[in-house]
Amino acid sequence: MNILYALLLLGILGGVFGLVLAIASKVFEVKTDPRLAEILDALPGANCGGCGFPGCAGCAAAILAGKAPVNACPSCSGDKTARIAAVMGVEVKAVERRVAFVRCSGGDRAGHKFDRYVGLDDCVGAMKVSGNGTLDCAYGCLGLGTCVKACKFGAIRINEHGVAEVDRHKCTHCMQCAAACPRHVITDVPYSSDILVPCGNKDKGAVAKTHCAVSCIGCRLCEKNCPTGAIAVVDNVAVIDYKKCTSCGTCVTKCPRKLIVDIHNNGKVAPVVISQ
């Protein structure tokens, strides 16, 4: 008899709950746009925040609501953006892929005003305790890896010289590294760029030269020799206009500091030979 009661009770309880849930699912039904799931599916799902919305779900909702363009996601490459555009029924113009770039190659080749730093393993911490960083140079990478922690895609590492280095094949241009860097040493360059100036030192040549073995001294040799006028010294540091640059490599050979590098798009900064 007891077993019958048990069966009945659980059966009835289960039935009642099932019924209540079935009714509730109808009563409390929330209609979601099927396009939302499709957009969310096309987004990378890393929730990097590069688009400015809270995570990929927030970005998908904003795209759906028309508050953001279909290419709002900085991490999406062409085919993904095309998928989102197809879902939304609009066309998207091809946007050139860009990647993050660390404007410093100093590290152990740069002068350090503090020999040893033993505080928090974090650039922000190092900035706070040391005044303005542990380097002589006020612009260089401290190499403690705040950007490495910020990267959701594992595209930054600290290289053998102790400088942050971007793997441009993995980089999705979300620029969270640039936002995390207290030195503001990370900018972006086109993915197709070959010639890079890994220095952002705005000091005058004499000062820059004493601070670091691989600094731009603003000598303008590159500017004078560039056949297309693509490279110019702005604020005592060479800057390349990639719209004009033809990757001829003249500046690489002319640079007296052997600072400018031609990476031939292989994602690695070639070893710099120091002439000192």
């Binding site: 209540v20 849930l21 509730a24 409390f28 039904e29 929330v30």
Partner: peptide, 11 residues
């Protein structure tokens, strides 16, 4: 929990 989830999602 199922019920609460549905309720919250709606209201």
């Amino acid at each position: 929990v199922q019920f609460v989830e549905m309720f919250l999602k709606k209201s």
